[in-house]
Simulated scan of single mutants.
Amino acid sequence: MRCERNKDGSFNVWMTRDEYHELPRAADTFQREIAIRLMGDCGLRVAEVLDVKPVHISRKADGKHYDLEVVSGKDTTGEYAGGKHRETWLPRELEALVNRYCQQHNVDENEPLIDRGKRTVQYWVEQAAEVAAKETGDEDYLRISTHDLRRCWANHLLVEENVSPRIVMALGGWSSYDAIEPYLAAPTEENIIDCMTQVGL
C-alpha cells in the first residue's frame, strides 16, 4: 500500500486489489459490504452510493453481465441539472449479493439500497479499515477514505488491467482525460514485466 500526503495533511492511499478486498471482507453486514463494493468495484462516489436502487440494475444485451445506472453523478461542467447520468459495470458477484440482500430484507425496487447518510457510509469504511488494520497489521488502512476506493478501482482498470481510458472515463463519469490522469499511478514491476513480455522485448 502506498500513501501520499496532500498539502492539507490528508492522504491519498493506493491499494492493490488484494489490499482492497480486505475492506469488504471486514464489513459486518451485507448492507455495509454492498456500500463499500459499490465504490471499490463500480467506481461510485460516496454520494452516488446513496441513490442506488434495485431498479437501477439491468442485464446487459449478452444476458450474462449487468449495468448499474448512476442517476445523479457528479457534474463538473455545470451542464446537467441534478447531476450527470451514466451507466457503469456491475460485477455479477455483486449483483448476486444485492439480489440476496433485497430478498432477505424485502427491499422494494424503488427503495435505496443504502438508506443512510453520507457520513454513515464514510464511518462504515473507517470501521472496516480498522478491522483490516488489526487483521493485517498494516496501519496504512487507517488512512483510507471513501474516495480511495474509487481511486483503487480506477487505478486497477487503467494500470493493472490496461482498460482503455475512454472506457474508464465513461464508467466513472469523467468528462476529460485530464480528470482521470491523477488516478494513474506508476505501474507496478509486475505490470511492466507483463507488458514488455507481451510485446516481445
Rank of each mutant, 00 (worst) to 15 (best):
Y101P: 11
H85K: 11
V52P: 13
V199P: 01
L142W: 13
L184K: 01
R150N: 01
I192G: 02
P54C: 04
A35V: 08
N106Q: 13
I57S: 06
Q127I: 08
E160C: 01
G63A: 13
T197A: 15
P54Y: 03
Y66C: 02
V70C: 04
V163I: 15
E69M: 06
W124I: 10
D51E: 11
L201N: 06
L201H: 12
A154Y: 00
V98M: 11
L23M: 10
R86V: 05
A47I: 07
M196A: 09
S164P: 07
H65I: 01
A26P: 07
Q122M: 08
P54E: 05
D18C: 10
R5T: 03
D115M: 09
D115R: 15
I34Y: 06
K7E: 12
R150F: 01
C102M: 10
Y101W: 12
V168W: 00
E190W: 00
E130S: 03
E19H: 02
A47D: 12
V131E: 08
M169C: 01
L23F: 02
E135R: 15
G43V: 05
R25T: 15
V49P: 02
S175W: 05
N162A: 03
K118R: 15
H56F: 08
D178N: 04
H21G: 12
C3H: 06
A81T: 12
F30Y: 15
M169A: 04
S145R: 15
I144R: 09
G82C: 02
S58H: 12
K134R: 14
H65W: 07
A96M: 07
E139H: 15
K7S: 06
E79T: 09
H147Q: 11
E109S: 04
D108T: 05
E87T: 08
L23N: 05
I36Q: 07
E33N: 11
Q198G: 13
G173F: 03
V98H: 09
T77Y: 13
D138Y: 04
C102N: 08
W124Q: 07
L50S: 05
M15I: 03
F30H: 14
A129N: 00
I36A: 10
